[in-house]
Structure formats: structure tokens, C-alpha cells
Write a protein that binds this DNA or RNA. Structure first.
Length: 488
RNA sequence: GGCGGCAUAGCCAAGAGGUAAGGCAGAGGUCUGCAAAACCUUUACUCCCCAGUUCGAAUCUGGGUGCCGCCUCCA
């Protein structure tokens, strides 16, 4: 089956064909490091992380570049406010970015180019645009002349006429056309500045992404993405600059844009001040819950954020975890082995789930559907588990191993259930490390003592053990096959 | 004002011509000493409204209504 992606440029789903079958090249618009990441930042990076994981599972080699816009008004302002140098702000928030994204299990890009390291490339690009007649200098500033680029507006679907009519911006009289945008800005006193043919200054917004993506990926790279607010003007301008510069088209093969996170149905934005920092959310919820929450809606749809929704996500994720723990418990249990009709049913369900999961992901990365497929498989696993625990059927270890491999593969594509898949101390029988084995041994001992109490119908003791263990994070579950403990 | 998107159960959310997935919450049940977890049953004669196309529409077309986003820094 073919992978289809929704291309913002054509506004339709297209079959994905990488330019180079050997390597998929993607450029994701990164952050401007002037504050800690908020949950709106988390969405595109979780989304692109899954896109990349899926492409890799499909057999592609992916080259992933994501920039840091480290030269920017907001950074300069933050530096002024705090009375520190701009690069202090930058390094602090880049560090924070990685800290948060690592917690969300977002794999690192192969390259994180920064604007401040690419002044030569940027200046060269601006010079070329001036030389080619696409840009002009006015008193140390350089502007891109949108009228010179015939295709201007092709990504955002607007014409220069439309924009003139609806202009809400104060027009700079020095510009030839109101929509002309700065490629280079002359330095103001006290601001970071770099040398250029037009005097000291710094790049305008937009040009850095063109310069850096072209440097590392070349023209016509496969994916370029970010939040849908970047479509205009940022990405529109990138196209104008890059295609004019290269004298070639297209700049990018597939443009993908994620929808926004809203709060109370309203866009979360810096100007509204209604945004939540990821680090604050993570005080109340595990990072994986936030990740699951983001993935439970298709990436292009808006996503409304609230504590209630996050709590719901936590319970939905719990169900997925339980299936893993059930499999791990069975794998280490001593119940009778043997194939059964039920194990065949499970094996078929796993095969089908895998097909459906890939089908969902092939359809423009439909993670919401993919998750529901996992829920379906989890249910089959639990049914199988229950039948064994009830002593109705033997345990087919070989089949279970296959099913587990499928389940783990799907979870890995979504970047979920990491602790459950790799942990050794989350359900009895599974401990591997020395310390874990000791703890597991102690837990088994406590459980044995509780079983004795239960035999004597000493419910007070039995319940006390159960309650106290729950307090330190271990849940006890009884079954006809005996009791088991599991983490959390 | 210009451009674009969305409206599916109590909540969240897939589905995009063939007769409504999944999750959460609720109700009942199985299991249990009681629980927990799991499982079973149950919750949209119907997909914002009105027309139209079609043998057939939540899905396509036209017209309404409501909400949201972009056009200004923003993921």
C-alpha cells in the first residue's frame, strides 16, 4: 500500500514519492529559544517524531534537520529585560527545549542548525536575490520584492490583490509593495549585528530557514513542516526566496502543517497569554500522557487542551499498558504451555492489527485510527490473558512472543509504552537487574504472606498489605492462578 | 474586508458514496472474601439545518446557520 500525505501546497492527499528513494529529507521549523516550550510547541515535534519513526519503520532512511532561530527580536527583548547577553537566553532555552522534548520521547534531529552560525550563507543568499533583481536595498535594509515572484501566494492561496485589500499592517513607505518583507535589517544600537554588504545588521525572519534548509538538504527536499500558522507568511516567503534564488522549482515536495492546540476552544498564543508550559504540565501528568493525548487526534485537526482531556488520555493509555503487563506476566509465568484455538485467534488478530495500523498510518499519518487499532489488539490480548488466568486454556508462549513483537512494534512507531516495554520491575516475574530482582523477591515474599492471611480469612491483614503496597505504587490483583503485583 | 478550515453519542474522536470504529464517562452483569484489573451486555434508526445528484449520502453539489484559524509575533 502506498503512503499518502496531505500536501498543503496542493491541498490534497498525494502519494508520497521521495526525491531520492534511498533517503527522505525533512526540515522541521524549530523554535525561537526565548522561553520554555509550551504545549503548542510540543504538538509539531511529537507529530514529526512519529512521522519520522513511521518512515523509518517503512524502511526509509530519514535525514531530519530542525533549526533554532537564535537571532530574533523576541530573544533580543528577553535579553534586554534580563540585562544579559542574547546568547545567554538562547542557550538557556535550547537546553530547556531538549530537556522537555527528551521527556516526551522525541528523537533528536540529525542536525540543529542555528541562524548565528549561518550568516555567510544568509548574506550570500540575500546578495544573490538582490543581484537577480528579486530584492532591493533601502538604507541598510534589504527587502524582498513580492511582485517580482510570479508564484507568490501559491502556498497560502492568496493573491497580492487580496492581501492589499485586507491589509491590517502599517505600511512602511520605503517598501515598493506593502507585502515586501525584510531579508536583512540594519542594526540598532545595542543589538547583535553581523557584517554585510549593506552594513551591520541581522537577517529578517524567513531567510534563515531558506538558507539552512538549502544548505543541508538542497532544492526539492521531501518534507517541510511546522504549525499551520507558519503557512503565511513564513513558508510562503521561504518559497519565494528559495525558488527565486535557485531559479528552480519546487523548493519543497511536500508541505505538511499541523493544527493548533486550543485552550477553551481558543487558540493558545503568546499574545493571548493563555499558554501552558510543558514543564508545568509535566508536574501533574507523565510525559507519555501528553504524547498520547497529542496523538489521539489527527495532526491536522485542532486539539483542545484541558486537564479533563489529559485525564481521559491517561486512562486510555492505561489500557494499552495493561496489555503489555499482561503479556509480560504470561511470558514469565509457570502456567501450563500449549497451543490452543484461542492462541490462533490472537495470532490472527495481531496480524490483522498490524495491517490495519500500517493502513492508518499510510493515510496521512492517522494516529488516532492507529491508536484505536492498538486498543483493539489490547483487548484481544486481555481476553487471551483472562482465559489463561481462569485456567481455561494453556499458554502458547511462542504465539505470545509473536504477538508481543507486533504490539511492541506498533507502540514503537507511536513512541509509546517505553517504560512498559523496557522495564524490568513493573510486573512480577519480569525482574532482570540485581536491585530489581531483590525488590521483586521482597514483593513476592509479601504476597506469599498475604496469601497465608487470606487462607486464614484474615482479611484485615490481607487488605492492609494491599493498601500499603498501593501507597508505594504497587497494585495487587488476585486471580484463580494466584495474586500478582504490578507497578503503579 | 480577503483567504482557509471545521460541525459525528454525555465528553473525546475515526470514517469521506453502500448502510455509524475506538477511547473516556454512565448503567447492568461475570470474576472476587471485598477489591482491582479484565471480559460481556448496554448508550447516535443517525452524523448542524434545508434543498439537490444518486438505486443508495455522515460522506458529493448548492444554499443557510454556528464555531475556529490565517491575513500581526506565534508551533
Amino acid at each position: 500500500m502506498a503512503l499518502k500525505v496531505f500536501n498543503s501546497l496542493t491541498k490534497r492527499k498525494e502519494e508520497f514519492r521521495p526525491r531520492d528513494p534511498e533517503q527522505v529529507k525533512m526540515y522541521v521549523c524549530g523554535v525561537t529559544p526565548y522561553n520554555h516550550p509550551h504545549i503548542g510547541n510540543a504538538r509539531p515535534f511529537v507529530t514529526w517524531d512519529v512521522i519520522r519513526r513511521y518512515l523509518e519503520h517503512r524502511g526509509y532512511t530519514v535525514f531530519h534537520v530542525q533549526n533554532f532561530t537564535d537571532v530574533d527580536d523576541k530573544i533580543i527583548n528577553a535579553a534586554k529585560t534580563e540585562g544579559v547577553s542574547w546568547d545567554v537566553i538562547v542557550s538557556r532555552y535550547i537546553e530547556s527545549y531538549f530537556e522537555v522534548m527528551d521527556k516526551l520521547n522525541i528523537r533528536r534531529a540529525h542536525l540543529y542548525p542555528r541562524v548565528s552560525d549561518h550568516m555567510a550563507e544568509i548574506v550570500e543568499m540575500v546578495e544573490t536575490l538582490v543581484r537577480k533583481g528579486f530584492a532591493y536595498e533601502v538604507g541598510g535594509d534589504v527587502y524582498y520584492s513580492v511582485e517580482k515572484f510570479d508564484d507568490y501566494g501559491k502556498l497560502s492561496g492568496r493573491s497580492l490583490e487580496d492581501m492589499k485589500a485586507g491589509a491590517r499592517v502599517d505600511v512602511d513607505e520605503r517598501k515598493t509593495h506593502p507585502m515586501d518583507f525584510a531579508l536583512w535589517k540594519s542594526a540598532k544600537p545595542g543589538e547583535p549585528a553581523w557584517d554585510s554588504p549593506w552594513g551591520k545588521g541581522r537577517p529578517g525572519w524567513h531567510i534563515e530557514c531558506s538558507a539552512m534548509s538549502l544548505k543541508y538538504l538542497g532544492m526539492e527536499f521531501d518534507f517541510h513542516g511546522g504549525g499551520s500558522d507558519l503557512i503565511f507568511p513564513h513558508h510562503e516567503n521561504e518559497i519565494a526566496q528559495s525558488e527565486a534564488y535557485a531559479g528552480d522549482s519546487p523548493f519543497v515536495r511536500y508541505w505538511l502543517h499541523n493544527g493548533f492546540i486550543t485552550v477553551n476552544e481558543e487558540k493558545m498564543s503568546k499574545s493571548l497569554g493563555n499558554f501552558f508550559l510543558v514543564r508545568d504540565i509535566l508536574e501533574h501528568f507523565p510525559p507519555e500522557v501528553l504524547r498520547f493525548f497529542i496523538l489521539s487526534t489527527h495532526y491536522r485537526s485542532p486539539l483542545d487542551f484541558s486537564d479533563e482531556r489529559l485525564s481521559e488520555s491517561a486512562r486510555g493509555l492505561e489500557r494499552l499498558k495493561t496489555a503489555v503487563l499482561n503479556m509480560k506476566y504470561l511470558a514469565n509465568s509457570t502456567v501450563a504451555r500449549g497451543a490452543s484455538e484461542e492462541s490462533q485467534v490472537l495470532a490472527n488478530a495481531a496480524n490483522q492489527a498490524k495491517t490495519e495500523f500500517y493502513g492508518a498510518m499510510d493515510d496521512d499519518f492517522n494516529t488516532a485510527l492507529a491508536i484505536s487499532v492498538m486498543h483493539g489488539l489490547a483487548k484481544e490480548i486481555n481476553i487471551y490473558y483472562s482465559a489463561i488466568m481462569a485456567g481455561k486454556i494453556p499458554h502458547d508462549a511462542e504465539t505470545l512472543a509473536t504477538v508481543q513483537a507486533v504490539y511492541y512494534e506498533l507502540a514503537d512507531i507511536l513512541g509509546l509504552l517505553v517504560a512498559e516495554r523496557t522495564g524490568t520491575l513493573d510486573v512480577c516475574g519480569g525482574a532482570a537487574g540485581t536491585d530489581d530482582q531483590t525488590i521483586a523477591g521482597l514483593l513476592d515474599l509479601i504476597l506469599a504472606i498475604r496469601q497465608d492471611a487470606r487462607k486464614k480469612k484474615d482479611w484485615a491483614t490481607a487488605d492492609q498489605i494491599r493498601d500499603r503496597l498501593a501507597e508505594i505504587g504497587y497494585v495487587i490483583e488476585d486471580s484463580p492462578q494466584g495474586a500478582r503485583w504490578k507497578k503503579r
